[in-house]
Computed example of a mutant assay.
Amino acid sequence: MEESQLERNPRNGFLALVLRPINWLKMLGGELHWSFVLGVMIVYGISQGFAVGMIKVSTMYYMKDEQKVQPSELQVYLGLLQLPWVIKPLWGLLTDTLPVLGYRRRPYFIFAGFLSVTSMLALSIQRNLSLAFSLLSLMGVSAGIAIAVVAIDACVTQNSISHPSLAGDMQSLCGFSSSIGALVGYSLSGFLVHLVGPKGVFGLLSVPAGLVILVGMMLKESRVHKFTHRGVNEKFLDAGKAMWTALKFRDVWRPCLYMYLSLAVSLNIHEGMFYWYTDAKGGPSFSQVLAFHLL
């Protein structure tokens, strides 16, 4: 009966298909609070997905054209920019054990947003930046995004404990937001670098970074009462011991070791190919728009 109705009224079927994700978001907002759903979409979709896609392309052009960095050096510097992501467990331990002004998540969102905004504006406004200061600013951007992601992951974990039936939906929301944001970011990165240059892109990205501050201001979170900083060291050590205990399990350390080795021993000439793609003398001299599609 339903199939025949859909065949007779294809518009109703299309409308139901379009409204399904909207109703799904409404359901999540009603069960988990709208500020959490919006926070996931901002952090995963805009800050991590969209902004990281834009930053990757603009950073390579910035280091090549502004700082005159060689491809071999660029690989080393891009590896250094991943350090804030390598120490993500440290950010997680801090958000769990060290509340600020009675809150575990909100201050970290605000701090991450301000760190990203100031780093973006420094790269965009300041002229003739030294290589060291440029790397420090780019690392600040990376750290801001990493801290925001860790904080929203903590919120997802907390809500998964209180709403176990919605744990899968929350993971779907995170993955969906990140994928859509990355798709849009990578699609627009080449065009924007061509129009306003890499420094102009950094300036534009201060707006998405500022949205993370908004997450910290609007997120619904219960305040921690009866907290003393004397027990922070003890809680920090206990959390570290619990993490080490988890890593001792065979089902945990073996996949971690495999993922580490698969990334550590794989050869990558991505930066060298980028320089060749955009070289006017020895390469095909692709524009920013064409080079983006080949990255």
Rank of each mutant, 00 (worst) to 15 (best):
K68I: 09
K68F: 12
K68W: 08
P71I: 13
E73N: 11
L74H: 10
L74K: 08
Q75A: 12
V76W: 11
V76R: 04
Y77W: 15
L78I: 04
L78Q: 09
Q82G: 07
Q82H: 04
P84I: 09
V86D: 02
W91A: 07
W91Y: 13
L93M: 14
L93A: 14
L94Y: 04
D96K: 12
P99C: 12
V100N: 01
Y103F: 15
R106P: 05
R106W: 01
R106L: 01
F109W: 07
F111Y: 11
G113R: 12
V117E: 08
T118L: 15
S119T: 06
M120W: 07
S124E: 02
I125R: 05
I125Y: 08
Q126F: 15
Q126N: 09
R127L: 05
R127P: 00
N128C: 00
L129V: 10
S130W: 09
L131W: 03
L131E: 03
A132N: 02
F133T: 11
S134C: 11
L136V: 15
L136K: 00
S137I: 08
S137T: 14
M139H: 03
G144L: 03
I145Q: 12
I145R: 04
I145F: 02
A148I: 08
V150C: 10
D153I: 07
T157A: 15
Q158F: 11
Q158Y: 06
S160C: 05
H163P: 07
S165N: 13
S165R: 11
